[in-house]
Design a protein around this nucleic acid. Structure first.
Length: 276
DNA sequence: CGGCCCCTGACG
DNA sequence: CGTCAGGGGCCG
């Protein structure tokens, strides 16, 4: 379920816990989670490597190794990463365990098993994970109304569909696309080619403002993160529209509507966001 | 674009 | 039982 703000939280919490740790061994309970290369090579190559840093790109997490090699993962809907002590009880659906040199464990659990791992060597080009096809980060200074307009102004798909296109802006998912559209006062079902320059301007601003706001609201201590198994999304109470269909709009008081766009549940305010 | 696929679990 | 879930890829 995580989108960019949640993945950023995970990166911030876990990086200090794994940095400088050596991966002394790996347990792969399910090998289908490892997308590239084979599970055998994945385990063999990573064993005895030391973690130098953790990074995020869009909704991907990247574990950087001192050799320059990288472990890349995507949590998809239900993936969860925790650093635990060796004898802490294991989460159900724990698929991969990285045993670290200080006795702790970096554990990946994933109920629905949509999450994936990739291992890319320092000299190797990553054509596997999809990171190379990602667009701008929401905080990239090149993300502007002009950039969005150039990408989408002749595009017939819905503006919500545009925000979910990872190859243009990386990291926006179903919930924050609704929040961004609400903040920008644009109806999610509008065809992209019908938006005015002013509306692209509002969207461009809303993308970085929303992401910054929800990253901040999602902050959690490492202790609380572990206690709540990474499942406590603290920014949920700050959502303005998603999950609030049938309630009054916090700005104009009209009843928020739910609809389905591109197969995804979408909530918007017919008052603030028009109904075109 | 819509539809279907990958999976499990929660909820009505 | 059916529907839905904050992921993405593929296919027509």
């Amino acid at each position: 379920m995580p989108e960019l703000p949640e993945v950023e939280t995970i990166k911030r919490v876990l990086e200090p816990q794994v940095k400088s740790q050596k991966i002394s061994d790996i347990t792969a309970n399910r090998t289908d989670i490892i997308a590239y290369p084979s599970a055998e090579i994945f385990c063999e190559k990573i064993k005895d490597q030391t973690i130098s840093a953790m990074d995020r790109r869009g909704k991907f997490l990247i574990i950087l190794l001192e050799s320059g090699d990288k472990i890349i993962l995507h949590l998809r809907m239900t993936g969860c990463l925790l650093v635990t002590m060796h004898d802490d009880p294991q989460e159900k659906h724990t698929h991969i365990i990285f045993h670290l040199s200080n006795g702790s464990e970096l554990r990946f659990s994933d109920t629905r098993r949509f999450g994936r791992f990739w291992y890319i060597q320092s000299h190797e080009e990553d054509t596997y994970s999809g990171i190379s096809r990602l667009g701008l980060e929401p905080f990239d200074k090149n993300l502007s109304a002009g950039y969005l307009e150039k990408k989408f102004s002749r595009c017939k798909k819905t503006v919500k569909g545009c925000l979910l296109d990872q190859s243009v802006v990386a990291g926006i998912g179903n919930i924050y696309s609704d929040e961004i559209l609400f903040r920008a006062k644009v109806c999610p079902s509008r065809p992209a080619n019908s938006l005015s320059g002013c509306e692209w301007e509002r969207l461009s601003a809303a993308i970085s403002e929303c992401m910054a706001f929800f990253i901040e609201k999602n902050a959690i201590t490492p202790e609380e993160y572990l206690e709540t198994k990474g499942q406590d999304y603290r920014n949920t109470p700050f959502l303005q529209v998603y999950g609030h269909d049938g309630e009054n709009c916090p700005v104009c008081g009209e009843i928020l509507c739910r609809t389905v766009i591109g197969g995804r549940s979408s909530v918007y305010c017919p008052g603030c966001q028009g109904n075109l």
